[in-house]
């Protein structure tokens, strides 16, 4: 299975999916008009990955902004990982938020409330 990468843009996040290391990184801004079109290839990759996952899967989500349609797509990504975690029990979510960005911290906590996945909230310092 190949790694999958998408460069970040002003409206879409940088995506780095590495099947060997078992890392799923989503970083930047996610405010596309058509979030489904953007996240569909990621969902496809995940569908294949969950068939033959690494021994441990680490998900790093470090978003500065995301729009409401992205929030639903991110939930779909996490639901896929929740199903993997129920099977393998080895999925960990690192949710990064900038210091003082209570909204982003709350967004992570919202997902944590909806999903049965281990979340670690990690505060980052401003650049």
């Amino acid at each position: 299975m190949d790694a999958f990468n998408i460069e970040g843009s002003a409206k879409t996040p940088e995506i780095a999916l590495n099947p060997e290391q078992g890392t799923i990184d989503i970083k930047g801004r996610s405010i596309p008009e058509n979030s489904v079109a953007f996240y569909n290839p990621i969902m496809d990759w995940l569908a294949a990955y969950t068939e033959k996952p690494a021994s441990q899967t680490t998900v790093n989500i470090e978003l500065e902004y995301f729009n409401t349609s992205s929030s639903k797509c991110i939930l779909d990504v996490l639901k896929k990982l929740e199903a993997l975690n129920q099977k393998s029990g080895n999925v960990h979510i690192n949710w990064y938020y900038e210091e003082d960005d209570e909204d982003m911290l709350e967004a992570g906590e919202d997902y944590e409330a909806i999903l049965n996945l281990p979340f670690k909230m990690i505060e980052t310092k401003e650049d």
């Binding site: 008009e33 489904v36 409401t68 349609s69 639903k72 797509c73």
Partner: peptide, 9 residues
Amino acid sequence: ISLKGGAGL
């Protein structure tokens, strides 16, 4: 997500 692409949020 609706056909228009909105999540109702």
